[in-house]
Amino acid sequence: MMDPTLTHADRLVGQVLGEVGSLPDVFVELEVNFFLVRRLVGVRTKGTESPRRVSRLARGEIVMFNIGCMSTAARVVAVRNDLARLQLTGPVCTSRGEKVAISRKVEKHWRLIGWGQIQAGITLDVPLRPI
């Protein structure tokens, strides 16, 4: 029972709407089990030059995170093997087990470098009623 004018011009893209108490947790930090692709997709190479390899995630690096239809930046806090802890720039309403896409800025464009699955994270306490 939502007014359709609220969705005009994609104003609610990336937002989650649901009944009170039925929505997943709101995370500010995530632990993600990830997999990186071997070579960058969509980056031009000159002549016989081989495609660029994707380097490992580095502590302090900023990456773009796509969860469902929401995009948000995240700072890599720690990396160990295939598990990364990421501090999000803004809170995200999602659930454990959700699939994510990871992008890195390459030559002024965001390029897909891998994907992952949310394992755990630090949540916000959201009041059930507005203050």
Rank of each mutant, 00 (worst) to 15 (best):
V13F: 10
V13I: 06
V13H: 10
V13Y: 07
G14S: 03
G14K: 00
Q15F: 07
V16T: 11
G18S: 14
V20S: 15
V20K: 15
G21A: 00
G21W: 02
S22M: 11
L23W: 08
L23P: 00
P24L: 01
D25R: 04
V26M: 09
V26P: 00
V26L: 12
V26I: 07
V28P: 00
E29W: 03
E31L: 05
E31R: 10
V32H: 06
V32N: 04
N33Y: 12
N33M: 14
F34A: 09
F35D: 13
F35A: 14
F35I: 15
F35P: 07
L36D: 11
L36M: 12
L36E: 08
V37S: 11
R38A: 05
R38H: 13
R38I: 01
R39S: 01
R39K: 11
R39W: 00
V41F: 11
G42Y: 02
V43E: 03
R44Q: 14
R44W: 06
R44G: 14
R44C: 09
T45V: 14
T45S: 14
T45P: 09
K46M: 13
K46S: 12
G47Y: 08
P51R: 02
P51K: 02
R52V: 04
R52Y: 04
V54G: 07
R56A: 15
R56N: 15
A58E: 15
A58I: 02
R59V: 07
R59D: 07
G60Y: 09
G60P: 12
G60D: 07
G60K: 11
E61C: 12
I62Y: 02
I62H: 05
